[in-house]
Design a protein around this nucleic acid. Structure first.
Length: 484
RNA sequence: GGGGGUGUAGCUCAGUCGGUAGAGCAACGGCCUUUUAAGCCGUAGGUCCUGGGUUCGAGUCCCAGCGCCCUCACCA
């Protein structure tokens, strides 16, 4: 049936509801209890007891068998059936006959059971709270078209309960992270999302414009340089959970805006960050499955502690079969992998080979430690070997999940690293952040810093293989506006 | 940006060799006091993603474009 006709029928019903003296878009409906809670009021040992309840929810099933109507309601807690009978509803029977799938209604009644054994609220009074003009998706399959699911997430959420479940878990896990960090003495802070200089990472930023000041600003690619300013300021333990924006490709692991948790701890180093990371994520996993194993697509990830800690060079040897110090061998391997190595610096070639051969092999949680220093301009070099940086990345299911270092706090080296970076990468951080250097000149305590990609973490915790399934409204290219 | 897939009724999907566009759910009408993805009987519902082309004839074949998904590239 044509879409317009379906809506027209529902609009007509809304009008009939008005004629009966009801507002199809109702008012405050006080004292509602969640459907799961209402359902639990039924006592199987005492089926003759009929506790009263007031409930509300969206109609997901409706069967009209003459002078009896069965309706299944859904809310965020679950589902419950309502039984409506002509005999008991009296005047309101006419209203009941105007209900459609998708409408949001409220009901008062007693919890009982049907002859077939389903717990049911036998309604004595009903009300319409919102008339749905658009018909909902099919009740059995739900909404499966991925494009529609993302563009109209509101429909996806109410028609596919498992989607709600994923986002509830996301919220709970982030709350747990906040609690754990706060309990350990970390202070949650908020630093600028709009920055005059986009620093702290190498990524292309989004540019926006402030009219009154007539200046371009960047959406931040990282909060790092501001959080470190707070270490200078004397906060010893800070963290921020917020959005970063990167103007780059979109994939199952990349959304242009994504949520990052960054924390900094004075007087600590990257070893402390490793312990903290392992502890944080393990606690989340334990709550989901005490066996410490979680499925992820075709994989099963084993989070049993302790997690592997392997050096960058060790892994390169293991998976690429080359010695990091034998640059000829590395370059030969690169050519074998079709990497255009000729114009690249040694370290870049090494990293290309590393990314091509190692990363997707790291399925169970693995800390990769001691990165080549040139890849890490914000990291303190190893005291006994300045070619290596005190940095780790955590890989799970082949995904880069966390990145951490012993923070560089020598302003002179920091400035030099920025200069090298600026010379090599015009495209990224185009301006020296003199104020950050100035902050370091006042003295920043030695510190460990950690970043965890929250969306990717949620992917692992909820067995979602696309980042779009853990972001409520992932970026979609605009289409022509929907009209009535 | 490259490669692969996909787009048909509100939703989920069929559609053979190029020959009148189909089903289920939802809707509408009728019967029914216990339905559990679909009660029974009946009715109605289409920009086959868009624009060209080939053909007597295109949902189907060809070309171009668009959206989405996967993948590669890019990505501290």
């Amino acid at each position: 049936m044509a879409k317009e006709k379906l809506s027209e029928d529902r609009l007509n019903k809304a009008q009939k509801i008005r004629e009966l003296g009801y507002d199809p878009y109702g008012q405050r409906f006080d004292g509602v209890i969640p459907l799961a809670q209402a359902k639990a009021l039924f006592d199987p040992d005492n089926p003759e007891k009929h506790p009263p309840a007031r409930i509300a929810g969206r109609i997901i099933f409706l069967r009209d068998i003459g002078s009896l109507i069965f309706i299944r309601l859904r809310d965020s807690s679950g589902e419950l059936q309502i039984g409506l009978s002509k005999k008991h509803l009296g005047q309101q029977w006419k209203l009941a006959k105007l209900f459609d799938l998708g409408d949001i209604i409220g009901a008062d009644g007693q919890i009982g059971i049907t002859k077939t054994g389903e717990i049911t609220l036998w309604a004595t009074e009903i009300t319409i709270l919102a008339k749905a003009i658009n018909p909902p998706p099919e009740k059995w399959h739900g909404l499966t078209d991925t494009e529609l699911r993302y563009r109209q997430r509101y429909v996806d959420l109410f028609s596919n309960p498992e989607v709600q479940k994923t986002f509830k878990l996301r919220s709970e896990l982030i709350a747990q992270i906040r609690t754990m960090l706060t309990e350990q003495g970390f202070l949650e802070v908020e630093t600028p999302m709009m920055q005059a200089i986009a620093g702290g990472a190498a990524a292309r930023p989004f540019i926006t414009h402030h009219n009154a000041l007539d200046i371009d600003l960047y959406l931040r690619i990282s909060p790092e340089l501001y959080l470190k300013r707070l270490l200078v300021g004397g906060f010893e333990k800070v963290f921020e959970i917020n959005r970063n924006f990167r103007n780059e490709g979109i994939s199952t692991q990349h959304n242009p805006e994504f949520t990052m948790m960054e924390l900094y701890q004075a007087y600590a180093d990257y070893n402390d960050m490793m312990d903290l990371t392992e502890q944080l994520i393990s606690q989340l996993v334990r709550k989901i499955n005490p066996e410490m194993k979680l499925p992820f697509g075709e994989l099963t990830i084993d989070y049993t502690q302790p997690w592997q800690r392997k050096t960058y060079a060790e892994l390169l040897k293991e998976h690429a079969g080359v010695d990091i110090n034998d640059i000829d061998a590395v370059r030969a391997k690169a050519r074998q992998l079709d990497i255009e190595e000729a114009t690249m610096d040694d370290t870049v070639v090494i990293n290309e080979v590393f990314e091509a051969t190692v990363e997707d092999k790291l399925i169970n949680p693995t800390f990769v430690i001691d990165y080549p220093a040139p890849l890490c301009p914000l990291t303190k070099p190893k005291p006994d070997n300045p070619d290596l940086a005190l940095r780790f990345e955590l890989f799970i299911a082949g995904m880069e999940l966390a990145n951490a270092y012993t923070e560089l706090n020598d302003p002179k080296i920091q400035k030099r690293n920025f200069e090298i970076q600026l010379a090599g990468q015009e495209e990224t951080m185009a301006v020296m952040d003199h104020d950050f250097i100035n902050a370091l000149r006042y003295g920043m305590p030695p510190a460990g810093g950690l970043g965890i990609g929250i969306d990717r973490l949620i992917m692992l915790m909820t067995n979602s293989t696309s980042i779009r399934d853990v972001i409520l409204f992932p970026l979609q290219k605009p289409k022509e506006q929907l009209t009535e």
